[in-house]
Computed example of a mutant assay.
Amino acid sequence: MKEPVTPEEQEIIARQLGRPPRALRAVAHRCPCGQPDVVQTSPRLEDGTPFPTLYYLTCPRANAAASRLESTGRMREWQAELAEDPELAARYRAAHEAYLAERDALGELPTRATAGGMPDRVKCLHALAAHALAAGPGVNPIGDRAVAEMGEWWASGPCARPEGEA
């Protein structure tokens, strides 16, 4: 469920990212610690520049977990599996079409860009995990795998505390 971003959450997201968020529309997923870990963004930045990333992983711990997976070669393994498993490839293509339909409903871009490499490649586990968290289990099979293998990034508590909290 997409929820409006409160001023306090916008502040937390800025601390998570280390900069003010751009094209922010909504909180698309909350970490089990309660803070936003995925946001939904507009298809265009404030100045009109196309911004094809509909879902953005904001939690630095989740980002680090996705980066660790990428460094172990999981993208290559899953890419190879896509070429060998027509059912997986069909589900991944359906995830891509669902992603584009949702993004296009907010505003069409001049080109129908890919999301995390979809539908033919596994390119960015950060984008795929963000989509899987925002869409819920069963929508993006590669994103679901990434989320499952990222571990419990939230286990040590919130990654960004509200202003004034230790």
Rank of each mutant, 00 (worst) to 15 (best):
S42K: 13
Y55C: 04
Q16K: 01
F51C: 14
A95W: 11
V27R: 02
C59Q: 05
T114A: 03
T6Q: 03
D144T: 03
G164Q: 07
H131M: 05
P50M: 12
R76K: 12
T58M: 02
P50C: 14
G73T: 03
D104G: 07
G143S: 08
W154F: 12
L82M: 06
V5A: 06
G73M: 04
H126D: 02
Y55M: 03
A80D: 09
E84H: 12
R25A: 09
D144P: 04
G34V: 14
L69T: 01
A101P: 06
G117Q: 05
L54P: 07
G48D: 09
A64T: 06
M75Y: 00
A132S: 15
T41C: 12
W154V: 06
A66H: 01
R44L: 11
T58P: 00
C159F: 08
T114I: 10
A26L: 08
G143A: 10
C33G: 08
Y99E: 13
P119Y: 10
T114E: 06
P137V: 00
C31K: 10
A90D: 14
R121Y: 10
G107N: 04
R161N: 11
C33I: 09
C124D: 04
V38M: 08
A127L: 14
R30P: 03
E81W: 13
T114D: 05
S42Q: 12
K123F: 15
A127I: 05
P86T: 14
R22Q: 13
K123W: 11
L45W: 09
A135N: 02
I142H: 00
C159H: 07
A113P: 00
L45I: 09
Y92H: 12
P50F: 15
I13K: 07
A135F: 00
L100E: 15
D120A: 09
A101Y: 02
A166M: 10
A101W: 02
T41F: 06
E102F: 06
G164S: 11
A83L: 13
S42G: 13
R145N: 01
A89S: 14
G107F: 06
L133M: 11
L24P: 04
P20S: 06
I13G: 07
P162W: 09
A160T: 11
G116A: 06
E70H: 10
A113W: 14
E87D: 14
M118W: 03
N63E: 11
A155Y: 08
R91C: 09
T58G: 01
C124L: 00
R103T: 11
S42L: 12
M118C: 08
Q40E: 15
P52G: 09
Q10H: 07
L69Q: 05
V122A: 03
V38E: 11
I13A: 08
C124Y: 01
V147K: 00
T6I: 02
A134T: 00
R112N: 07
T58Q: 00
E84Y: 05
E8Q: 12
L24S: 06
P162I: 05
A94W: 03
Q16L: 01
R145W: 01
G151D: 06
R93W: 08
G138D: 08
L57V: 08
P119T: 15
D37A: 10
S71D: 13
A132I: 02
A66K: 00
A89F: 12
A105G: 15
I142V: 15
E97A: 15
L24C: 07
L100S: 12
A89M: 14
R61K: 15
A64F: 02
G116C: 06
Q40A: 15
H126L: 07
P20K: 07
L109T: 08
P7D: 13
Q40W: 11
E46F: 07
G117R: 04
A64G: 11
